[in-house]
Design a protein around this nucleic acid. Sequence first.
DNA 1: GCAAGCGATTTGAACGATCAAATTGATCTC
DNA 2: GAGATCAATTTGATCGTTCAAATCGCTTGC
Lengths: 358, 358
Amino acid sequence: MSQDLSQERGSSQVTLDDVAGFAGVSRQTVSNVINAPERVREQTRQRVEQAIIQLGYQPNRAARALRAQASRMIGYRIEPVHEQSLASIHDRFLHALADAGREADHYLLLFTADDPDAELAACTQLFRTGGVDGFVLYGIDHGDHRPAALRGLGAPFAAFGRTDHDTEHCWVDVDNLAGVSDAVDHLVERGHRRIGFAGWPEGSGVGDRRAEGWRTALARHGLLAECHGLDVRGTDSIEEGARLGRRLLDLDKPPSAVVAATDTLAVGVMQAARVHGLSVGRDLALVGFDDTPSAHVLGLSSVRQPIEAVGRTIVEMLLERLPGTLRQTDTPPGPVGRLLAPTLVVRDSSGATVPHVP
Amino acid sequence: MSQDLSQERGSSQVTLDDVAGFAGVSRQTVSNVINAPERVREQTRQRVEQAIIQLGYQPNRAARALRAQASRMIGYRIEPVHEQSLASIHDRFLHALADAGREADHYLLLFTADDPDAELAACTQLFRTGGVDGFVLYGIDHGDHRPAALRGLGAPFAAFGRTDHDTEHCWVDVDNLAGVSDAVDHLVERGHRRIGFAGWPEGSGVGDRRAEGWRTALARHGLLAECHGLDVRGTDSIEEGARLGRRLLDLDKPPSAVVAATDTLAVGVMQAARVHGLSVGRDLALVGFDDTPSAHVLGLSSVRQPIEAVGRTIVEMLLERLPGTLRQTDTPPGPVGRLLAPTLVVRDSSGATVPHVP
DNA sequence: GCAAGCGATTTGAACGATCAAATTGATCTC
DNA sequence: GAGATCAATTTGATCGTTCAAATCGCTTGC
């Protein structure tokens, strides 16, 4: 009986006034039914709710944004696509953000920028024009200037990753140390005692923590001395990974297992192993990081980041510090960080078959 | 001398009135300088422009959207991430859309939906609330109900891909037939005469056109009879690709080359070849479709879709049919389609080394 | 010299929502 | 029974912009 009568014409906007007229109340009462139902008498509320449904009313976002000075939009920059990198993390992250936002009636506004300067300019413009209420930053690491810049702008934001000044902004990060450490534990459990590490050059927070995970796990197992010299570094590309793999496999006493700081490097190590006539999984155990689709394709064990949880948490933290969303606390919550634990996905490259340990 | 004085406080919004006061003119004159400069006297215009720069004025999007009844936002649904599929096409497409939109001061609004029904509900809501002016649809194929549904909604949209009723909506598509046909040409040029095809089951527009590309190219080269029975079909997964590969390689007279309808299937064929002790590139030539990062990693030749051009074109077409953007034509441009040509990326799997042709 | 014409600019009203203050009507108090 | 109290509802103003119409000042024509 209560059909949605609202599909008359495409351009027909149903407004608060329409609903009010239909329900025989005033504009504001309808608004209250939506935003503060406790102020409205039960009986009236039901009548208005009926009217809302019958007319198919949906509050206009622009009007709301103008009055409330809040667009309910979150800005997110998508980086240029690197053909090279295997990242599907982006995809998953974006999805998690969009999903988490929608639950709170906040949507993602996507924009592009070719470099950090352009990104900052775009952020400034978006924030000043009221296009977005805040930002989510992706891939923040030591030395990144964006958090400081956004703070200077006065724009709320939450970052995936942290700078060396991580007390000064709001971040969520994956426990990279624990991830690599778990990988080493797994390999030790399988009987490996010479475990190499192929990582990034020192200086990046993420890379250093992954290396530290290798080191601390080895130390815990009393294998540090045995694995001395098995730590090689290079930039994040397949070619470089192959080079690192060769370096490890050319040693007098090569490792029987390798942990790579990324799947990209791991793929390179795989190539090197192939060249050496070694079968990955049988002659050489290998674990990557990121659990990209390529890892799946290649049967590569990999440390999987809990991206979905990261996205959800980031949105939660961001929404908390958007003015107007929660009025109970006048002082915005101070800068906070949260660390989430990754999980190891075991595949053929490290586990399904028993490796040959020299 | 003309410094940007606008960074007093975070919440300080510079409005049209501020600029007007500063420049000694009225609100509307400032608005005209921005939206219809020809109506303003040169001298005044310069004065106002100075004021705009000095105060760092940026028009408020919400106010603009409310008055103009246009949010300058384009809705785009991101699909759930399939771990399985290797698509990076998404990434590239998204980037192209965002880039093209930004040039016209239109931004992408991202949303998620678990199934077509939920997607339609989300579209309805976004459109009715004025959250977006129109939509970009991704991956439209025969039998897809979304174009019809959006048309029913009265929402402008442009689709990547087309239904069987492709005269009824606005689309951009890649010339799948030409892509596969080019791949076959390339293989014939390299001396192959028995060329197999691993594709999708009949019924999908995209899949059928790719198969048709194989057939027409063979016909052109007079190889149709010779390749009879080399056409195998299965769903889009690596496992299925491996099965199709085995079926082809188990034949009495197996093909010396295979074109796969996707990189995913091609990866499966690669696995099958490995099991058969065949080296891809030497014993078996292989071409995939989509040019995913995995193709790059594996040295797989692949047909690359001109996604960037597709994105740009789609946004252009969509903006053309947004009311208000172009007022010259009162009747909106009729439904149009555009077909863009893909290019073949040759890698080791089909070309760099001379294949052994039995 | 005055109406008409015209370009440049201003004024008033909207767009659709929310906030703050005012109004209504019923109940309670002394 | 007059005034105070309180919940429920309404009215007026406002957010920042753009559209439509009105105004201003100046030239032109007869």
